[in-house]
C-alpha cells in the first residue's frame, strides 16, 4: 500500500475511477482512458494494485462461522416451513372469525324473537329507573342530601299551599262573610 499523498479532491476522484474499474462499473470510454493512463503511469498502476490488494484482503478476512452439517439446514428449513404454515393458518382464521362476529346492528328483532326483545326492554327500564333513583334529581337523594331537617323541608310546601288557600277557605267557612268588594 503506497503512502503517496492523496487527500486532494482530484486524488479522490481518481480513486473513484480505479474502484469503478475494479468493480466493472466503468463506461467503455472511461475504461479506455484508464487503460491508457495505466500504460504511462507507474504511480497509477501502483495505486490500482494497492486498491485491488486491499479489496482482496478484506474479502480474505471474511470469517463467518457457518454450520456445515446438512441436518442443521434441514431442521432450519422444517422449522421455517412450520412457522410459515402457522402464520398462514392464522391468516386464514382471521377473516373467518371476522365474518362470524356480526355487529349488533346487523341482528334484527325478528331474529331475536319477542321474548328476548321484551326482556331487553324491561332490563333497560329497570336500569334507567335505578339510575334516576340514584341521581341528584330523585326525591330520596334530595332528602338525604338536603342541609335542612327533613321535617322542616317537608312542611315548607305545605305551609306555602296553606297560605295560598287561606282566603278561599275562609270564604267557604259557614257563616263567614266574604270580603266586600273594593267599592272605592
Amino acid at each position: 500500500m503506497s503512502r503517496e499523498p492523496r487527500n486532494s479532491p482530484d486524488d479522490r476522484w481518481v480513486d473513484d475511477w480505479w474502484i469503478d474499474l475494479i468493480e466493472g462499473e466503468s463506461t467503455p470510454s472511461m475504461r479506455e482512458d484508464l487503460t491508457l493512463l495505466l500504460m504511462n503511469s507507474p504511480a497509477g498502476r501502483r495505486r490500482l494494485d494497492s486498491i485491488k490488494d486491499l479489496r482482496a484482503l478484506v474479502k480474505g478476512s471474511d470469517e463467518v462461522p457457518m454450520p456445515e452439517d446438512g441436518a442443521f439446514y434441514q431442521n432450519m428449513h422444517d422449522r421455517i416451513m412450520a412457522a410459515v404454515d402457522g402464520a398462514a393458518a392464522v391468516r386464514r382464521a382471521k377473516p373467518a372469525a371476522a365474518a362470524e362476529r356480526k355487529p349488533l346492528s346487523a341482528v334484527s328483532a325478528r331474529q331475536l324473537g319477542f321474548p328476548a326483545l321484551f326482556g331487553t326492554h324491561t332490563l333497560m327500564v329497570l336500569i334507567a329507573s335505578a339510575t334516576w333513583m340514584t341521581s341528584d334529581r330523585s326525591p330520596r337523594h334530595a332528602q338525604t342530601q338536603s342541609p335542612n331537617p327533613p321535617a322542616q323541608d317537608a312542611q315548607r310546601p305545605k305551609k306555602a299551599l296553606a297560605d295560598a288557600q287561606a282566603p278561599a277557605d275562609r270564604a267557604r267557612r259557614p257563616g263567614a262573610k266574604a270580603d266586600p268588594p273594593d267599592s272605592k
Binding site: 500500500m1 494494485d49 485491488k52 490488494d53 486491499l54 484482503l57 474479502k59 480474505g60
Partner: peptide
C-alpha cells in the same frame, strides 16, 4: 498488504 492481498487476489 501487498503480499497477502496479492496472494488472495
Amino acid at each position: 498488504v501487498h503480499v497477502e492481498g496479492g496472494r488472495m487476489r
